[in-house]
Design a protein around this nucleic acid. Structure first.
Lengths: 199, 199
DNA sequence: GTCTATAGACCGATAGAC
DNA sequence: GTCTATCGGTCTATAGAC
């Protein structure tokens, strides 16, 4: 609708598809159907536009994850539900994608929202796993922090497998694989059901 | 030493640091200390140079992984040793990095070695885990394929955490987290010792 | 607000001298 | 083999008309 809005959305798409270096103002304008002068009227330039796009992407990621994290169910059930949701989406993590971009990470302003969002996700997962641990939901001996890091890493890395394989199958398998970790009792790797922990 | 050699090595470095789009022939020449004419004498152009660099990177990845995979020890011990080796290196996977580059994946010639190396790693891990499963080394109910995918994903994704955190701690934690999956019996998440499976 | 024109630098590549 | 010169194109941004 709004011109500025179209520009931000186009930037978000291109940032995801081609990264920061691979995304030119010209390409953004064309995708948004907006002229050059228009773009520089609404935004300072490429970094300014990128900041708006990155900030929004980071916030959306947090919002959609938090929705899963606060849904009904036990803590570990909610983590599992989140993972399965990501598995469905098959999209990969748009924030993690940004962390792979040298120019984004080199600029403190662009870097900040990326680092913050990833740290938030990691911390949130650790919190939920710690809660699950207290309830005996988590497999004994599992460290919530390390497990949260492993889950975050799987989420980031699965997209590499998806691109390499050209299908979403490895992503789904990887999520299944990490889901198997969570189960309090040894369970089938294809565990699509919430772990029946003592509620 | 050799001029062509220097060019390939510089390209490998820049491909890792800045990706394909972010790497210009000029930058490659400067890092290699080689002139423009020299580069175009030895290589067809940017794609040709990239192919040489990518091929070598993929081969080195396979060779170093295979060294771990054929080392003494039980199958699962060897997988664990490989993961711990990667944890030490703290570098992230240079092949997975390439799979994130749109221009690399868009070119079938450049894409091939990347896809092949990742598929090889995934398959090799699955083989070893399947062997470990038969020996009762693996936690019951774990699917070798899904677990191999999860491990591969962690390897690819940990680097995102490293860059985001600015330290290698999350990478190490993530590896520890995934190592905990392998144990036949519930073990401390900081399990640095090989799982004492029945040899 | 949006347009066109223009700028200076760099992109990837080629030509031709040495 | 390696050099310098040059090419047409794109990059990011600014200027100034409308």
């Amino acid at each position: 609708m709004g011109t500025a809005e179209d520009l931000i959305e186009s930037t978000r798409e291109l940032l995801w598809e081609r990264g920061y270096v691979g995304t030119s103002p010209k390409a953004i304008q064309q995708r948004a159907g907006v002229g050059q002068g228009s773009m520089y009227h609404h935004f300072t330039g490429k970094p300014g536009l990128a900041l708006a796009a990155i900030t929004r992407t980071a916030q959306e990621m947090r919002a959609s994850a938090e929705a899963r994290f606060t849904a009904p169910g036990t803590p570990v059930e909610r983590v599992a539900a989140y993972l399965r949701g990501e598995r469905e989406a098959l999209g990969g993590c748009p924030v993690g994608r940004l962390s792979q971009d040298a120019d984004v990470m080199a600029d403190p302003v662009l870097r900040a929202p990326v680092v913050e969002a990833l740290a938030w996700l990691r911390g949130r997962l650790a919190e939920l796993l710690a809660q699950g641990r207290e309830r005996g939901e988590l497999r004994p001996g599992l460290d919530p922090e390390a497990t949260a890091d492993a889950i975050t890493a799987v989420l980031q890395g699965s997209w590499a497998l998806t691109r390499a394989a050209g299908s979403g199958e490895p992503f789904a398998d990887a999520v299944d694989g990490i889901l198997a970790v969570l189960a309090a009792t040894p369970a089938p790797a294809t565990a699509a059901e919430p772990a029946p922990g003592p509620a």
